[in-house]
Computed example of a mutant assay.
Amino acid sequence: MWTKHHKKRKLGRFVMPLVTVAFLSYFGYHSVHGDFGLRATEVFDKQRVDREARLKTLTEKRMILEKEVALLSDGSLERDMLDEKARLSLNMSRADEVVIFH
Rank of each mutant, 00 (worst) to 15 (best):
G34S: 01
E84N: 13
K85L: 12
M16Y: 02
A53F: 07
A22N: 12
F44Y: 12
H33P: 03
F44N: 11
E60Q: 06
R79W: 11
A53M: 07
A40I: 00
W2V: 07
H102E: 05
R39I: 09
M63E: 14
H30R: 02
Q47I: 08
F27I: 01
L82A: 14
H6N: 10
Q47T: 13
L58G: 02
S73I: 00
H5P: 03
L90A: 14
V19M: 13
V98K: 03
K10C: 12
Y26A: 08
F101D: 10
H102M: 11
E84Y: 05
K85Q: 15
R79Q: 10
T3H: 03
E84G: 09
F44R: 10
F27K: 00
L71H: 07
F101V: 13
W2R: 11
E66A: 10
A86M: 09
E66F: 07
T41K: 11
H33M: 04
K56H: 11
T59R: 15
L58Q: 14
S89H: 14
K4H: 08
V49H: 09
L88G: 15
M63R: 09
E52I: 10
R94A: 15
S25H: 08
V21L: 08
F14I: 05
G12F: 00
H6T: 12
K7R: 11
V32P: 05
H5N: 01
T20N: 03
K10G: 11
L11Y: 04
Q47V: 11
F36G: 12
I100C: 04
L38W: 03
R94E: 15
L77A: 12
K8M: 04
G75L: 08
H33L: 05
S93R: 11
H5T: 01
R62F: 00
Y29A: 09
L58I: 07
H30A: 04
A53Q: 06
S73A: 08
Y29F: 03
L82H: 14
M63N: 12
D80A: 09
K85M: 13
S31N: 02
D74E: 08
L18R: 05
D74K: 02
K7G: 05
V99D: 13
E68A: 12
T57F: 05
H30W: 03
Q47H: 06
L88F: 13
F36K: 11
K67C: 08
H6D: 10
V21I: 10
E66M: 02
E66Q: 02
Y29H: 10
H6G: 14
R87V: 01
M1W: 03
K67M: 09
L88A: 12
H30Q: 05
